[in-house]
Write a protein that binds this DNA or RNA. Structure first.
Lengths: 139, 139
DNA sequence: TTTTTTGCAAAGGGTTTGCATCCCC
DNA sequence: GGGGATGCAAACCCTTTGCAAAAAA
């Protein structure tokens, strides 16, 4: 449970955080801060953007969520911290998880200059619904 | 030359575009719109952000430049359209090109649902200068 | 009680837009 | 000359900040 990770990290368990965590737990939709804000606001009408961003930043720092840079116009958050990658549809923007562990070695020359901690692969292309909706255009 | 690609694409060759292109040609620094704006403005004091963004958007649409999403707080642009990947230093933010052609196959189940057009790998870690500057902290 | 967290509202930074003018082709 | 491109300024969107009030531990 994410809640356990939060208190284990020394973060306080506030109802707002519990609500945010409840929304994120098992969520594979890669929600933005606004998505989270609106979803959580239904239960906590006083919820503010500041709290959403504060909480996400704190959880990010403790490794509970991951910030995705796959969308150029907003940050998205992923509660799945297991190593995985993403595929984004150029047409509808849908983001899909891919659980594959690729072995990606750097050229020796580069490896000398950088100590790699991790990697992330973004695939881009078109999803089947988009292809079927607009054949020859979407792809 | 990028200028040839511009006119070949039916885009007009304005002095502003030539200046932007001159700055981008061979530039491996992954500049942001603001970087481009300031660099070009030295020669063309009337240059506006609108023109920079218009031009980048147009060039992007024609495949002359690529928009990088590696930086969460701003878009960066890469005139290198050859297949390559990037490594970003978590510490100083430096972005380095990696010219490797990885073979990344999707799981069959995913491949049925998505037609992949391309991929991009982001490595994150620490560059040598950062490690030497703050050993044990930076990495 | 102590320290963190919240919520508001305003500010900040990057990007986009509307529109009159300009100028490449 | 015509249609695309420019430049300005304002608007927009997402994110961050300051600070007083509230609440977790």
């Amino acid at each position: 449970m994410l809640t356990e990770k939060i208190s284990a990290a020394g973060m306080r368990l506030t109802p707002q955080r519990l609500a945010i965590v409840a929304f994120l737990e098992g969520n594979t939709g890669h929600p933005s801060a606004e998505d989270i804000f609106h979803a959580v606001r239904r239960r906590y009408p006083s919820m503010s953007f500041a709290t959403v961003y504060n909480t996400l930043e704190a959880m990010k720092g403790v490794g509970i969520v991951r910030e995705l840079k796959i969308d150029a116009s907003r940050r998205r958050y992923d509660p799945n911290t297991k190593r995985h990658h993403h595929l984004m549809c150029d047409c509808c923007g849908k983001i899909v998880d891919i659980h594959v562990d690729y072995r990606l070695d750097l050229p020796a020359q580069v490896a000398e200059e950088f100590e790699v901690i991790g990697n992330h692969v973004e695939f881009f292309g078109t999803c089947r619904p988009c292809r079927e909706r607009a054949p020859g255009i979407a792809g």
